[in-house]
Nucleic acid binder design. Sequence first.
DNA 1: GTGCTTGCAAAGGTTTTGCACTTAT
DNA 2: ATAAGTGCAAAACCTTTGCAAGCAC
Lengths: 132, 132
Amino acid sequence: MTNLKYSRQREAIKEYLASTTCHPTADTVYMNIKKLYPNISLGTVYRNLSLLAEHGEIIKISCGDGSDRFDANIGQHYHLICSQCGEIIDLQMDSIDHINAIANASFPGKINGHTVYFYGTCEKCLKTEKYS
Amino acid sequence: MTNLKYSRQREAIKEYLASTTCHPTADTVYMNIKKLYPNISLGTVYRNLSLLAEHGEIIKISCGDGSDRFDANIGQHYHLICSQCGEIIDLQMDSIDHINAIANASFPGKINGHTVYFYGTCEKCLKTEKYS
DNA sequence: GTGCTTGCAAAGGTTTTGCACTTAT
DNA sequence: ATAAGTGCAAAACCTTTGCAAGCAC
């Protein structure tokens, strides 16, 4: 974990991520930062997203749909992946940290964390759904 | 979802997956099926793994480490990803299905499933760990 | 000045796809 | 006979990396 020296590009990436709740992909971040810094390269975006994730300033979401996504919200929260539109939506919900204890109960190793993705239908898609 | 016609290759893939609990990648499946059918192509393996997952005969595990993994155990169970050796281990544990209800409680859409990956240290790595 | 950061382009790894041929039904 | 499956190779896709130049400290 190397030292971080200031860079405008990284700062812009952080700001952009903080400004949205839509969990963009690296490419989406790239497209948006480009508006401000037209010369930024995709490699720089990837490098900074990795660095920021490594330093715990952002979260990397790998939901297995091709590209990873990124989230500046590092507080404890969970995600819903809408089966219809594919969007990732933040869930406000009670803690489910106790599932670690449940998993640990009969496991000979040691569990210290978890990643959860919920699947379902988001509010928007539910409203326009053809089949109730 | 197309009809499935019998094929030796697909049958071999199913059998191989059923014979192991180690959650192989597509490439590992390919290597192993090759022993039986030396001419099988990687494309065929990918096509069949997708088909089988689509039909619910196997599960695709995307833990975000580069390659997807596959599992013939389609019963309800969870996985631990060992932070030290990277292996994926099946967890026998009580149901945590109630987390859907917790997530649903204050969500305006509809939740009907979840994917959980636990992180920690497997038994083997725990034993050889330097720092207690 | 030193070392982290950048842009660019090339390469890497994983997965998908087009095509002509083969096989199951 | 027809539609699904196959092998092969190329392409697509996402991400990482080597390098020389630039910038922060």
